[in-house]
Structure formats: C-alpha cells, structure tokens
C-alpha cells in the first residue's frame, strides 16, 4: 500500500544528508557491523597517523628483546612481544598496516576502475569488441592467479608497483563480469528505452542510468575483494615475491615468524590475527552494506523488526 502524505513543503530541496543519516542509524543498531566499522576506522588511523609516529620504533633493533614474549613490564612497545631481531611487534603491526592497506587499496581501485570500464564496453558492444574483452577475461580467469603472479614478479622483479599491477590484473575479471551482466540486464529496462527515445546518447545512458545503479554492487564487491587482495598479497610476501625488506607487510611478518613458530608463536600469530580481523571486518561490513542499500531487505533495519 503506497500512500503519499502531502505534508512536505512545496518545492523543498531534499535534504542531502538524509540517506547518510539513515545508514548511520542502521549501523548503530547492528552490533557486529558497528564493531567491524570501529575496527576499520582504527586501522585507517593506524595506517595514516600511527605509521608516521612509530616508524623509528618499528625498525629499532634490540637484541636483548629477541623473540620476547608478550609482556606488560616492558612498556607499550613489547605489549605484543618482540620479533626475531627484538623489534617491537606492535610498532611493526602499525607500520605494516600502511603498506598492507596501501597496496590492497591501490590494487582494488585499479582493478575496479579497469574492470568496470571494460565491463561497460563489453556490455554495450555485443559485437567483436565485446567478444575480445570476454575471451581475454576467460584467459585471465583460467590461469591460476598465483602462477600469473609468480611469472610476472619473477620477470619484472618484485616491487610495490609490480605487486599492485599483478594483484589488480588477477582481480579484474570479477568486476568486469559483474558489470557486464548488470549492464546487459539494466539496458533492457524501460527507463533506458525511454531515455533513448528522447534522444539520449550512449554516454548519457551510461552516466545517468547505468552507473548509479551499478555502483552499489561494485562497492560491495570491492569491500569483499579488499580482503581477498590482502590475503593474496600476504601469500606473495610470504613466498618472498612481494615487498622486499626493509619494507614489509603483514604477510611478510608472518613469513619471518615461521622459522620461530615453535619457540615464539606470537611473531606469526599477531600479524595473522591482524589479517584475519581486517578481512572479517570488511566481510561483515560489506554484507551489512548490501542489506542496508537493498530496498527489499530494508525492513530488517526498520524499527521493531526482528
């Protein structure tokens, strides 16, 4: 039953922040998503501010604290223990978050932009252009991602830029195929035909009718993908193909600690825990975001709904 109340002021501009406020209110109501969001905010702070503050601590070697266990007595620095060279694990986690998140964010943004653009083209051009794009995607998908990474990084040498490139390439197909599928569906909808019949160009249709509808899906995939990229990067760094010392990521930290797993479990455990919590938070948050932006699921967040 759709009833319209006629109470709103005539010609009033809609409040711009209304949608954001609604989402924030829904966030406060959902405890799991709220905790996840807080954790991610903390993580962003640590990657920006924290990493600059603690840079010296993270590289300060202290042989007396070699593989020191987590303790309260040694001050905040050794709260989580020390690594194989006696460096503060907490400081290294904070500094490592900058590289880890930085690489993941660049890779996700690159693959999203490239994937979405190619997906749009493939969806709108069903002829030979679309076919070529789709077949290249099939090739990327049928090649094991790790193998691609190994070959490319071996040939080009491991560096941050190359790592981002490899991670982006292996992730492109997800965006590309999703966007193409959505384009194929949405461009058949009557409102696209309506725009065409009024004389809208292809660009107009993409800008005003396709992108606004595809964007929520894209962002949901991106947040899940962010977690997948962190894990992939950790894997590559673990194999020694990722970031080279003295720079390091959480994945590289796990790799360093592996040799001491029996004597000093905390050296591997805490970076691993950081990876797990980050991916878990992202997954929780993106799942929640998908629900809250879908009008059909919105009743779950309405007052009194259980």
């Amino acid at each position: 039953m759709s009833q319209i109340d006629h109470s709103s002021t005539p010609l009033a501009r809609p409040a711009k922040g209304r949608g954001t406020m609604r989402i924030l209110r829904a966030l406060v109501q959902d405890r799991a998503a709220m905790i996840a969001a807080c954790f991610l905010v903390l993580l962003i702070l640590s990657a920006t501010l924290g990493a600059s503050l603690l840079a010296s601590h993270a590289s300060g070697v202290n042989m007396a604290m070699r593989n020191a266990p987590p303790q309260l007595s040694g001050g905040w620095a050794y709260l989580l223990g020390g690594d194989n060279l006696g460096r503060s694990l907490l400081a290294r986690l904070v500094v490592g978050s900058r590289t880890t998140l930085g690489i993941a964010a660049s890779a996700v943004i690159c693959s999203m932009v490239i994937g979405a653009t190619l997906g749009l083209i493939a969806g709108l051009r069903s002829g030979i252009v679309g076919d070529v794009i789709m077949r290249v995607t099939d090739v990327i998908m049928s090649f094991p991602a790790l193998l691609t990474a190994l070959i490319v990084l071996y040939l080009l040498g491991p560096s941050v830029a190359n790592l981002v490139l490899v991670l982006a390439i292996t992730r492109i197909p997800v965006y590309l195929r999703t966007v193409r599928a959505e384009v194929l569906e949405i461009r058949r909808r009557p409102f696209v035909n309506a725009a065409r019949s009024m004389g809208a160009s292809e660009f107009w249709v993409v800008r005003h009718h396709l992108l606004p509808l595809i964007l929520p899906t894209l962002l949901t995939i991106a947040s899940v993908d962010f977690a997948a990229v962190i894990i992939a990067e950790s894997g590559l760094s673990f194999l020694g193909l990722g970031i080279q010392p003295p720079t390091f990521t959480w994945g590289a930290m796990v790799a360093t600690g592996r040799a001491y797993l029996t004597q000093a479990w905390w050296v591997t455990f805490f970076p691993g825990l950081a990876i797990m919590l980050t991916t878990l938070s992202l997954t929780l948050l993106s799942n929640w975001l998908r629900l809250v932006t879908d009008p059909n699921q919105r009743w779950r967040f309405a007052k009194g709904g259980k």
Binding site: P14, P190, A194
Partner: peptide, 8 residues
C-alpha cells in the same frame, strides 16, 4: 520499470 529508481 520506466522510471529510474535512483532518480528524483
């Protein structure tokens, strides 16, 4: 279907 659901 003939009105874009995201547009005012």
């Amino acid at each position: 279907g003939s009105l874009n659901p995201t547009m005012e």
